[in-house]
Design a protein around this nucleic acid. Sequence first.
DNA 1: TTGAAAGCGATACCAA
DNA 2: TTGGTATCGCTTTCAA
Lengths: 340, 340
Amino acid sequence: MKKVFLKDIAEELKVSKTAVSLVLNNKGDENKISQETQKRILDYAKKHNYVPNQLARSLSRGKSETIGLIIPNISDTFYSKIAGYIELKLKGSGYTVLFSSSNEDPKKEGELIRSMLNRQVEGLIIASTQQNLKEIESLKQDKYPFVLIDRHYPEIDTNYVVVDNYDGIKTATEHLLRLGRRKIGFITLKPKLEAIRQRLLGYRAALEGFGLEYNDDLVKELDPLNYENMIGEAVGELLKFPNSVDSIVFSTHYLTAIGLRELKNKKIRVPQEVAIVSFDQLAAFDLVDPPITSVIQPVKDIAEHAVEILINEIEGNKNPVMVKETLGSKLVIRKSCGTF
Amino acid sequence: MKKVFLKDIAEELKVSKTAVSLVLNNKGDENKISQETQKRILDYAKKHNYVPNQLARSLSRGKSETIGLIIPNISDTFYSKIAGYIELKLKGSGYTVLFSSSNEDPKKEGELIRSMLNRQVEGLIIASTQQNLKEIESLKQDKYPFVLIDRHYPEIDTNYVVVDNYDGIKTATEHLLRLGRRKIGFITLKPKLEAIRQRLLGYRAALEGFGLEYNDDLVKELDPLNYENMIGEAVGELLKFPNSVDSIVFSTHYLTAIGLRELKNKKIRVPQEVAIVSFDQLAAFDLVDPPITSVIQPVKDIAEHAVEILINEIEGNKNPVMVKETLGSKLVIRKSCGTF
DNA sequence: TTGAAAGCGATACCAA
DNA sequence: TTGGTATCGCTTTCAA
């Protein structure tokens, strides 16, 4: 079947391109095009399986009906779930998602932003590396619609939907404290990210709330790009810490997974010898031995709110107030911290 | 900073748009444009941060430098990992990925295919619902570049990269048989998918290879959209089966997860009373109690091969032979089947 | 070597 | 109501 264009159907039906375009865009009635002509056009289009060229359409209208999603890594379940919910939420709205992973590389992220702009995406949802202040600021200055998720720039006034990292880790740590643990290690990432910094602060606040002193030796900050090779040493050091720690807070789900693997290798009994608690979780954390007490993120809410805010900004008011949301997380208590 | 267009820079520099376009596309030399003009153009472009409008560019050239990825569900780790590897492989190639999930809905899948074509994607990677024979056939007839992954249509001659489902499950089942299990249940999905059908055949072949009779009562086929509510009953029935099964083969990672949850709820000891083995796995399956013996998929290979085949077809020969790959999987033995 | 002009396919303004 | 035509921003052919 040969491809048919707007022009073809206009010529064939001996009407103008305008008429065809109008009718096909459901603007036939409001432009008072005769019912008969409309029918002829619609029928012909359907019969010949006409589909408009989106590129031409977008170029002409200055709208691409596409929104861009930039995340650190699509294969991280946290982000893939967010992507899934974003898609779901967008379903039926006519928008398509263009996505890309930055792999935590600020330079790449910058390129992605520009590349997406070139492609005329109408808005952006970004889980930023938090190291592109300039780019984000210029988006803002251009009044370009975007919303930051998961991570934001506290120094810029933008839309964002994040979770309360501080509070999440604080709650997790307090849980351990309440169960009587006192030598609590913290395995986290090098805090290039504000989000990660917040987690450290939460950990610290919990300790201090219980009158404990913050101790640098208990905190292990791994390189985000090389944590797998560093975890062994980190865990080892915590276990050697004057008489070993009695518990560990892990700052991300993947740190928890490899950390637990490490503990098992070293034949440490969890939670008897060392209790653990995880910020965020993996699908099978409830099945793990022992089931892992975790701070759960409101992934669905993050995705849905972000979409709502973005769409509203794209379609709505030019100069709305920025929407800033810090969602709470939930501590799901399983068995990795022992019981009272 | 105001947006600058090709025209602007041509006017500003008093050269033609052609010259600008040529130079910016690195065709300055081959069109013998004076070095000086080239330099002026390049400098000006850089200084004013010129970026071409991809839409216009694509429309004009008839190329979008975009490839489409259609998968059942981006939040399924299996597919999100594939998406991640596809992205990685495409990095630097200049192509961007447009992705969408079909949610196993053939109708939606059809719409997605058409929508992507409208957007002039240059090629498609599809993990199909396997219920769109027509659409796929017409892609083929139009000589449109595409490659099927994970699931293919045996009746059509297309490019594809899949794993050997039959063999994967057969190996898993044989593992149980070799460990002395004889009453082996199989929890799978309703076989609308060829891939799923293959798994059932693999299960059956293993049994028969050991001289066992295939028994319908041992096979539970759940509805892909409602498996969560059906798993309880399925497991229950297998446990009631004349004196209970001694093991269960799960056809997907998520069935394994919820199945195991069910077994734990019912206080069944795994593997002592019931051994289990999983086709495909979740990130923490090695940490689970007990660590789950699983058939591992070559996700990375699937993604990379698919990209190679596709790019080759897009850029290379018009009428190449179809590339058909059936990759092997690997049985990783952990503890959920017990030992000899 | 450079530039004018004709597309790419659709939208939308303005007359008729 | 309908149709001609300019336009979106860039590429590319063909003359000069």
